[in-house]
Design a binder for these strands. Structure first.
Lengths: 182, 182
DNA sequence: AATTTATGTCAGCCATATTGACGTTTCTGC
DNA sequence: GCAGAAACGTCAATATGGCTGACATAAATT
């Protein structure tokens, strides 16, 4: 491996963030970008750890979460939410069905549909994982107070694409809190 | 595939969020949990789209980002930040070196170290991706005002694990804004 | 009756992560 | 100066979770 050596090494003993040299343009939100990265990394880390014990991964969690929260979700809806293909969903969903975390029910309006429901076993897992994440969120919201919490919600809502929302997003944005500052 | 049919189908025409039946315990932060999921999904989606044109994935972006922002980052530091193994980093890093997005420089205090630096080409890519994400963040921050923006930063900071922070996190939490409400 | 929709499935591929083992260079402690 | 540890690179094998393409079936729609 070729070693590229520059004129003067200029070793920084203290690591410091540097605006990349193209700092001439509009200011970039480096702080928020990185905070989001770390916050999300640790946020999902809570669940990841616990999931190992069940032999599941993040994919299983996402499926379980949305099925539990939105009972009767169709397969197609789930695909929209997760933004994956049905083949990808297939493997994960099959495991969750086999291991009795989720059950399917034929739609009665449209018998082609397979509506998805969490079993008590599935709900328990989702609640456990949500508990871990809630602890972290509560701790963080305490720092900003109730008014701050509402600002955080507004911010997160505004970060989400609203064009062509999936069924779940529609439900989320139809919620009372959404009407607040729309 | 066995079809499990229940007593009464009870089809919901409008999808509605349901507290899983174990709602007896402490309240769970379903709203924030889901907002974080969707916000992050769309946030990283901005970059993902652009990366395809370069034949890169998210892994490349993460590496490029931190190397650009923290010039002289050691390989070991990067592993801490990204929470991956050196083998995983290896392939991605090799590509970025080969394609001249990143250069290595032997540490002069410790010649075992390979300090990482972005090339102008690399910086340009990172700035472009950060620009996309900044547009989204700016749009969202407008909704909450300057005071709200500070609340959002406080919230995100508080979401991050502080025990055993890596070098980059230390730098982030050493920043002036961090001192504000510590 | 023909077509479209919702779903499932088979086969293969790719990206990104893992563990374990091993080698080299260089620093550190004795 | 030497032993050992540290920082890195790399080989091999494996797992997960994505992907595309093709095809099948049942049920709804036209």
């Amino acid at each position: 491996m070729a070693d590229i050596n520059f004129s003067s090494p200029t070793l920084s003993p203290e690591l410091r963030a540097a605006e990349p040299s193209a700092a001439a343009g509009e200011p970039l939100r480096w702080d928020i970008i990185e905070l989001l990265f770390f916050a999300y990394r640790d946020f999902v880390g809570d669940a990841d750890h616990e999931l190992e014990a069940f032999g599941f991964g993040r994919a299983h969690h996402r499926v379980m979460h949305f099925v539990t929260r939105y009972p009767g979700l169709k397969v197609a809806d789930l695909l929209d939410v997760l933004r994956i293909t049905k083949q990808s969903l297939g493997r994960v969903l099959k495991q969750l069905l086999d291991e009795d975390y989720i059950v399917q029910k034929t739609g009665n309006n449209d018998r082609r549909q397979r509506l998805l429901f969490a079993t008590p076993k599935g709900e328990a897992l989702v609640a456990k994982l949500a508990g871990l994440q809630t602890a972290r969120i509560d701790r963080a919201l305490e720092q900003v107070g109730p008014a701050g919490a509402e600002k955080v919600r507004q911010f997160l809502r505004a970060m989400i694409d609203r064009d062509d929302p999936d069924k779940v997003l529609e439900a989320i944005f139809r919620t009372p809190a959404a009407a607040a500052k729309e």
